[in-house]
Simulated assay, not measured.
Amino acid sequence: MSVLTVLLALLSALGNGTASVLQRRAAMDQVREERSAPGPKRNPLRLVRLLRRPYWLAGLAAMVVSAAAQVGALAVGRLSVVQPLLVSELLFTLVVGSLVFHHRPDGRTWLSFVMLAAGLALFLAAADPSHGATRAKNGEWLPVGVVVAIAVGILIAVAHALRGPARAVALGCATATCFACTAALIKELTGRFAGGVAAVFTDWPLYAVCVVGLLSFLLLQSTLRAGTLAASQPALTLGDALVSIALGWVLFGERVDLGLRIVPEVAGILLMAAGIVGLTRSPAMCGGWDQVVPEPSRQAGPLRGRRRSPDGGEGTP
């Protein structure tokens, strides 16, 4: 894998992690204000009102940077390499989240991320995904698109029947599947760059990217409102990586070496899984770390420097 591919993929991961934290902060600000305001708690214009929040707009800008970096990475690299590298988004989520929500990570959390990073590096080094085609063969996208649509529909239906963290996980898996499909469509689109501007704007991949990307964006907003980042983020990042590897194999012929290499590959996957489990159970990522919204104190006295939770109670100093 090239250095440029890795750098662009990591920049995309940084943008994604930053966007998740900032838009989660905007969502929690809105929830806190809705709970303290009289009248109906649900409003169809809720998403429109988010557009006026600085944290949400900053998150949108981070998403744009992430998308541009991802297009560049997919133009020069393999889908089965770029998307797994986006698992590092979890690390950036922790770093940015600790700043936005004023919650310092502990040693257990950092150890979990070391395990996650080591597992990712071991898996990619052992698997060594092969170069595939820049475009899928004619007729392959239709059955793949049908399968993806059915899978996403089932996950959304399951999410509506669940509550709490389980709902966030189900929606995270649906969103991850859409993001992986969007990445595969971007890969398909970049394969048409050689044909010039006319080939890009007169063929279907550009418009498919817009439609699936918009669906992914809307699903992400629902995911961020459904539960904490500790529940949704692992499903988002790992689901995206695994589905992308499958799509790279089916659509573009990118192969992962097996044989004796399967031993370190499985070890890498287990390390990543252990890191994710440790992360979701760590004090820094559970217990509402991303629900306590810091507020500027309005008066001097013993309350100065305290944070308030969304229900109006006092947080920790």
Rank of each mutant, 00 (worst) to 15 (best):
V293H: 03
P234Y: 00
P40W: 09
G153H: 07
T182I: 00
E295A: 12
G287T: 01
V6S: 08
L91H: 02
L206I: 02
T18E: 08
V211R: 07
I156Q: 10
V3L: 15
L219T: 00
P105E: 06
L51Y: 01
P317Q: 13
V21F: 00
G59K: 06
A75P: 05
V152Q: 00
L236D: 00
V146S: 06
A180Y: 04
G119Y: 03
A235H: 11
A241M: 10
F201N: 01
I186D: 00
L94Q: 12
D106L: 05
L270M: 13
F201M: 02
A126M: 10
F113A: 06
A19Y: 09
R49G: 12
G97P: 06
F201I: 15
I156S: 05
M115R: 03
R281V: 02
T182D: 01
G259P: 03
V96P: 10
G59F: 11
P38F: 11
G97C: 05
A166L: 14
F113M: 15
E254I: 14
A58K: 04
V250H: 13
R24Q: 14
L124K: 01
V212C: 10
V147W: 14
S88G: 09
V263K: 02
L258P: 01
A157V: 02
W204R: 15
V147N: 03
G97V: 14
V144Y: 07
E140Q: 14
V197Q: 03
A273Y: 13
F252R: 10
G97L: 08
S80M: 13
L99S: 09
A157F: 01
R35D: 05
T237H: 08
P84S: 07
Q23V: 09
G191T: 03
A184H: 03
V209Y: 12
G15L: 08
M63L: 14
V200C: 06
P165V: 01
A68T: 12
L219F: 10
V81N: 02
A68Q: 08
A198Y: 10
P302F: 12
C178R: 01
A166F: 07
R104E: 04
T280Q: 13
